[in-house]
Write a protein that binds this DNA or RNA. Sequence first.
DNA 1: CGATGTATGTACGCTAACGCACAGATTGCC
DNA 2: GGCAATCTGTGCGTTAGCGTACATACATCG
Lengths: 239, 239
Amino acid sequence: MTNQSSRAGNGLLSALPDEAWLRIQPHLQRVDMPLGQTLYQPGGKLNHVYFPVDAIVSLLYVMQNGDSAEIAVVGHEGIVGIALFMGGESTPSSAVVQSGGYGYRLPSRVIKEEFNASVAVMHLLLRYTQALITQMAQTAVCNRHHTLDQQLCRWLLLSLDRLQGSDLVMTQELIANMLGVRREGVTNAAMNLQRAGLITYARGHIHVVDRLGLEQRTCECYAVVKREYDRLLAPDKLA
Amino acid sequence: MTNQSSRAGNGLLSALPDEAWLRIQPHLQRVDMPLGQTLYQPGGKLNHVYFPVDAIVSLLYVMQNGDSAEIAVVGHEGIVGIALFMGGESTPSSAVVQSGGYGYRLPSRVIKEEFNASVAVMHLLLRYTQALITQMAQTAVCNRHHTLDQQLCRWLLLSLDRLQGSDLVMTQELIANMLGVRREGVTNAAMNLQRAGLITYARGHIHVVDRLGLEQRTCECYAVVKREYDRLLAPDKLA
DNA sequence: CGATGTATGTACGCTAACGCACAGATTGCC
DNA sequence: GGCAATCTGTGCGTTAGCGTACATACATCG
């Protein structure tokens, strides 16, 4: 994954061709993205796309009975609201801020115009979308085959890659909602990781002690996704 | 989902603007797609895209230990090989023919040129891609939350929508690979459905007796995906 | 028509995760 | 400083699906 980026702190914004940046920049609006904020409702009209900087957004599906499951996660490497340029205008899933912070938003009209006006912008956004697709596919595989311990590792790593530092602010209850499992299950998995000396945590604060250990304990899914993000969004591929 | 379509029997080909069809048509090649054929290997170069007609193709991820899980399924409504126009050139998943038949293929170069040459073609393919994304997302949710019985119903319905008639030719072993579960689990689920009078089956042949019953027994995932395909690929939206 | 391979059924113990109920423990607030 | 809310730990019994091993049935082909 592209690391913290120069222009506005978002990887996609940074990768825009200069003239596209100049057109877009006046319409960009810095916004706070507090924990728990819902950016999109299922089926709802999308008025903006969001470029997170130090916030993390979860795309998740909420079932009729209230159970939920995370589909993918978006941070400073990406954009929330691909349905706008993909032509669907809406999606059956929601977008919720999973780690508070800030980002930039852009009116729907502007992103659509830019997508259609510049082939470079289009290709950039489509490559990002393919990376996101890989993440979703791997989430499906992971849900099918891997243990909660492994999935928690993967999830922590995905979050870590999108933050600076090694501390996450999130309760086990929240993580359980994202992974679509019981809160007690997360408690249990987190204790396992703590006993193994990989993390420490207390009341909504998780500190990662041994990142490498997490990478060794997680399933292949994390590496597959990371490799694909690196491949598709490598700096030399970006306009 | 768009039903069996006029032009060449594939929904996307049928929805192409006339002039795009005229450009593409000379490069289309009718190909047999026998059961079990691998169209793409993970990470491999894609030489063609495929438009199934009466074949069904599974996109699936095979893990290092050989376990597998289906990500999505493509039939006469779609195209196999979206990574080509998305700009990635390859994917970590494979594409395998899950129900034998025939389709048409098109050299990579042609689809890429057409994607870039015609805004109508581009928007058509992107809307299809978004529908596919919904299917993948819902697969992840379904893997997390729903019983094998429900998932089998969903899977049968997805297949049924892509075939004419009510008979599927596929062993329980194959279905198990697609769903990423044990063969015995499928045997068990299939017996449940048979006892309920929804299907009959024998040695690799499944006959659906009560489609409505399947729809009632499956989870919401099937309906969510179908609604999204209908919405995004409705005839009046198509060029 | 009998042999061989393939497809399906069955049994049994095992484990991960669930549902529920409740017990600390920490934080923030009045 | 005490109360309330929130967060985390724990202890049940339950269940869906797994791994393994084997049994039966059907189908094809020599």
